[in-house]
Design a protein around this nucleic acid. Structure first.
Lengths: 102, 102
DNA sequence: ATTATTAATCGTAATATTGCAATTAAACAA
DNA sequence: TTGTTTAATTGCAATATTACGATTAATAAT
């Protein structure tokens, strides 16, 4: 029904389609590494909710979590972030017709 | 709860979060202008479904539709597409820490 | 061993999304 | 006018997403 490219674009875009995940990622960029509980406090969502969003981001490979005792330190996974960017850029950067079409 | 920037990013990303809308946009880029019925046939979804997706894209200002008799010709709205790109790029292009963080 | 801390998982309610058949609306054609 | 064509709208069922309380799991501290 859809090309694998279309599916991939949609999958990546979907994960950014909720402000909580955008906020999580912005926080990880800002402070470089962060614990689940800190994100929960910073963003204002319950811990299980943050955990759930982190799981989705991790599943797509955009972040990784490192266990440090009882806590888990999350951060951006640079390689996959770059790969994701390439996929989305190819879609977003399509040539726009100069003249109005209709 | 969220910044207006986070909401805006999520709103734009969400519309790309479904392969049908990605397919519609790719088709509009490819053939420059297109009718609802043609999209329905090309993509393989019922006309009302396509119409619904077009509505969402139009609501965000990414496409526009021009009535031509009984048909409606849809195409990319270049200005808003560029504006949307700026918003998403600012988010996607955040500096990635060089060293592994955790 | 017991307790404390932190994150993951489970279960569930509320809400949102998706897809389509049926219908309506609008413009054109005869 | 009457029929034809095309897209929008409505109504609804199926599915997915989101949020969180309660619980569990894992490690650390005493």
């Amino acid at each position: 029904m859809y090309t694998s490219e279309q599916e991939e674009i949609a999958l990546f875009a979907k994960v950014f389609g909720h402000p909580a995940r955008v906020a999580i990622l912005q926080q990880l960029f800002k402070i470089d590494a962060c614990y689940c509980g800190d994100l929960s406090e910073e963003i204002g969502l319950a811990q299980p909710t943050i955990s759930q969003h982190l799981k989705e981001l991790k599943h797509l490979g955009l972040i990784k979590g490192n266990v440090e005792g009882t806590r888990v330190c999350y951060c951006i996974e640079p390689k996959n972030w770059t790969k994701m960017k390439k996929v989305l850029y190819q879609f977003l950067d399509q040539d726009i017709p100069k003249a109005d079409c209709c």
